[in-house]
Structures are given as structure tokens and as C-alpha cells.
Design a protein around this nucleic acid. Sequence first.
DNA 1: CCGCTGTCATACCCGGCCGGTATCACCGCA
DNA 2: TGCGGTGATACCGGCCGGGTATGACAGCGG
Lengths: 288, 288
Amino acid sequence: MVDTLETRELRYFVAVAEELHFSRAAKRLGIAQPPLSRAIAQLERRLGVTLLERDRRGVTLTDAGQVLLDEARAILDATTAAARRTRRAASATNRLALATKAGANHELLRKLLDAHAAAPDATEVDVLLCGMGDQARMLRDGRADAALMQRPFDDLTGFDTEDLLTEQQVAILPAGHPLAARTSLTMADISDVPDLPVARWPGQDGTYAPGPGPEIHDQSQLAQLIALGHTMAVLCASSRSWLWHAHAAVPLTDAPHVTTVLAWLAHSRSRAVAGLVRTATQHFPPAR
Amino acid sequence: MVDTLETRELRYFVAVAEELHFSRAAKRLGIAQPPLSRAIAQLERRLGVTLLERDRRGVTLTDAGQVLLDEARAILDATTAAARRTRRAASATNRLALATKAGANHELLRKLLDAHAAAPDATEVDVLLCGMGDQARMLRDGRADAALMQRPFDDLTGFDTEDLLTEQQVAILPAGHPLAARTSLTMADISDVPDLPVARWPGQDGTYAPGPGPEIHDQSQLAQLIALGHTMAVLCASSRSWLWHAHAAVPLTDAPHVTTVLAWLAHSRSRAVAGLVRTATQHFPPAR
DNA sequence: CCGCTGTCATACCCGGCCGGTATCACCGCA
DNA sequence: TGCGGTGATACCGGCCGGGTATGACAGCGG
């Protein structure tokens, strides 16, 4: 009845719960099937709960099993994150890993880094470029100490944040398109333009929502497709910095504003992170 | 080099890191000292990091050790929470544990429970009365599924919330006191009243901030002390419901408003919680 | 109806690891 | 220079996790 879930048990359970098949899970874990069955049975006995319903035709998760699956995944992620953070704290002492989207926020990042470098207690900053919402993952799994993220696009739960810059969104169009001549547009104007379907970005699970527009992986690809007149995109105003001559940016009056924030793990006790946050609050509009 | 931190290792490390003394830690863990030393050494070898500096005159934590201590505590809490949630999911199926402060929010709680009971998919609700910010702990460690908490007093990080009721704060005074005759007060009016020092509540770590006022443990004690004319307190307006004739409540014009919120664990997948949240959003002012 | 296949559970053995006791190396101290 | 007290080391025994072999059982095709 003691509630000491060993991570080994959790690893085993997650494997079985994901495969819903003991033999496959055992192979995935690199062990034989009987020890796996025994380990799961032992876990169930210790918890006093049946986690898996095994009857003819396969294995299914019980409600309790589903709960434990979610919890176990979180715990296992936390352990690997803990190991990484500990190693980083030992090796990269007095360094700070800042995750940011590749190819955006040049000026903002420059301004932040310059301000930080000028601070008296400046720590070295390693900038980690990552794509499309990888920042949250890197922050959570301990590879980064802080990140530049965007509200309302990114999932900020579990993070503390400091607002850095709020900006309008703009439509990026081929320069020659009729809509590019307008001084402003609305969301209604740009949805369902037959010859310019809006580009689709992957969601945070890596899949694409259905739609007519092309599937975009990175910014250079997007720039190319827009210049060719195959698509258009909605981006925040600072994206203007990397536009080509073949591009046009038109403000969107009714699109939600985008706030770039400095994010870090809630309850962080890192002195380096605290220093960066402090310079950020000092060099960017402190309150709304 | 593999990053599989076993919870046993983490338990051991936390004990040593907290005691800063191998023998005491071993006694606390119920094992002998040599296996403990070996386990810690093994953990350090596997991580490739020295966590503890042992030289003459005791043991101290390295920076990396401090990082791992924080992480390990969180992970261990998560495992016990996981065990509890799993057991509750199996036993109290289709029930829901709602944590709330003892002795507050009578009307609000009644209204919420009535609305929930009237919903078509009503699950049974177990109300857990707890004192002074225990709600957050019970939510985090899996003893409760949802809680009534108050912004800005309670630490809501890690929770999703739904605002239920925003109210003014009032000063609760002895009925006979001169200030009780006023129709409104400001924070300046009530600070530093020599004969009525403001009562002190414990912080979320259980300690009291220094000050002249009496240390308060619960509401009945506070009521008694106010009625005796020994202290005063600042509470949200709904506290009027339990006032005595010997009490007087005067609105505070410049105190921050208090919002009572329904809180639950972010990323919760519980159907029961979702149902309660749905009825809450329907029966309380949906948006500001 | 009967093997055949594939599932998970059971039985049994073995080796490694965890925990125990005994001891050492070292330091501060009287 | 003993003495108390620290953590580290040496060694041993039992337990438990992992392996192989096998069983119980269901679905299925002949």
C-alpha cells in the first residue's frame, strides 16, 4: 500500500499502456515479456488498482490506467528534464540557454541580448534556435533556461512570463496581388481568396489542419511560396524585417495582437534567469 | 550516462541534501549509512556530476545539487500525487473532490453545488474543508480534483481557473470602535491604528510576517479577537455572512478586489472536473 | 474437431544489486 | 595521543529483477 512508484515501473507501464500489447511493449523495453507482466501485476497489487483490462482480444486501459498514464508520462519527462538540468547546472555554470524561434524577432533579440550583456552581472547566453513551438519543449525538458515565445500562439501554462513587445499582425502577400495595394485588410478580406489560400502551419502536435493552403515548415519556404504568388500568410508586424521586394505587408485591423514574451519555468530559482528577467523588465515597457 | 533517475535514488538524495548529514539521512530513511553513501556516489557517477561537497566540517550542496534537490522534490511529490490520483480514479469513480476554505463562501459554494446537482451529468461532489491555502496543496497532491481559491492571495501557478465572483474587501472592526462609524475607509486609515493592530495570517509557508497584530489561525479565533476589540482584519465582502453583532464591516475603497475562482489542475482530462467547470461557466458571469 | 498461432500468466532458476555489519581513513578535540 | 564522529570501503547474504520454458486460453482455418 506504500505509494512509492519507481520510475522503472512507470516506464514499463507507459510502454504497455501505449502499445496495449505486452509482447510488443517488452520488445520496445528490451526485456522479455514475462518480467513485464510480473512488473505490471506487482504495480497493480501495490496500488490496489487494476490498470489494464486484459480479456480475449487484447488489452485496454481502465479509467485509473488512463489517469496513471498521464501522470507517468509527466513524471518520466520530469526525470529526464531533471537529469538534464542538473548536468547543465554543473557544466554550463553561469551560462544561460535562451530558446527562440529561428528567423524572427531579430531586433527584439538583439536589443535583449545587448541590454543583458551590458548588465553588471552578465552571464553568457547561448541562443538556441528552434522551430515552431519547440521552445516550450526545450524549456520543459531542461535544455533551455528561458525562451522567447508568443501569446496567444504558444502554450504558456507552467511558465512565468514577462511581456516584451506587443504588435499588430500583418498579411504578407505577393507584391503584385491586387490586395497588396490596400492600406489595411480584415480577416474577412483574406479568408477564401481563391487564388491565394492562406498557408497552414503545423499545430503544436506537429499535424496540419485541413485546408487549401500549402503546408509550411519554415520561414524561408514560406517566403519563397509567397514570392511565387502561391500563398499568403498572417504574421506579426516584425516579420517585415525579412521581407523581399516581391513581398508586401498589409496591416490586419481585426486580427488579435501578438505579444512576444520572455518565458521561463515557474518557480525557477536560477540566478542567471533572474538576471535576464530583470534586465528585460528594465529595458522593455515595464507595465501596460 | 543514461538519464534514468530512479525514485529511490531521488528519495535518498533528498534526504541527504536536506539533512546535509549522511548518518542522520540514513536513519531517517531507515537504512544504514554505507548503502546510502554508495547510492549517492552511484547517482553522482551516473549523472557525471558532483552533487555534494564533502570535506572536513560537514556536507554542502553544490549548485547542481541544489538544482537536483528542487527537481527531485517536485518529482517525488508528483509520484505520490500520481499514486493518489490513480487510486481515487479507481475507487471514487464518478465522484469529485472539491477543496474549499473552511468557513467562507457559503453562498457561493451553495450556489455552485446546487447548479452542479441540477446538471444532467451530475457527479457526486465531496467537499473537503481545509484551512489557509491548503487547497493548492490538496489539488497538487491529488487529494482534490478542484478547489475554490482566491486571487490574488493564492498561488495559482499550474492551475487553470474560472472566475466566479469578484468582490470588494472590507475592514472588520469591533462595532464600538470609532472607525466603525465610517461609511468607507482606505488602507491608510487602518494601518497603524495604535489600539487596533491588523491581524496577521500565516503565509503560504506557514510562518507569520512580523508585526504588532495577533497571529491568527482560523476564522473563529479572529472573530473572537475582533469582538473583544483586540484586533481588526481585512477580508472580502462575503465574510459579512458570518459577522456577529459585535462586529462592523466597512468597505475599503483602495484595497485590491478579490476574485474567488474555481481552480483545477491544468491539462486535467477528468470528465467530472470538466462538468463542474461547465456548470460554473454557465451559472456565473461568463465574461468580465 | 483439431491442431496452429498468438495472447498473457505461471514456474523456476540465476545473477546482480541492495542492504547489512565490520572496518578504515581522517579530522577535531581534550 | 586516544576518543568520538564523520563518510568511504570491503565483504557477504538475501531479495528481486530478468531470463527461459511452459501453461491456459481464445480465435481460426483446415
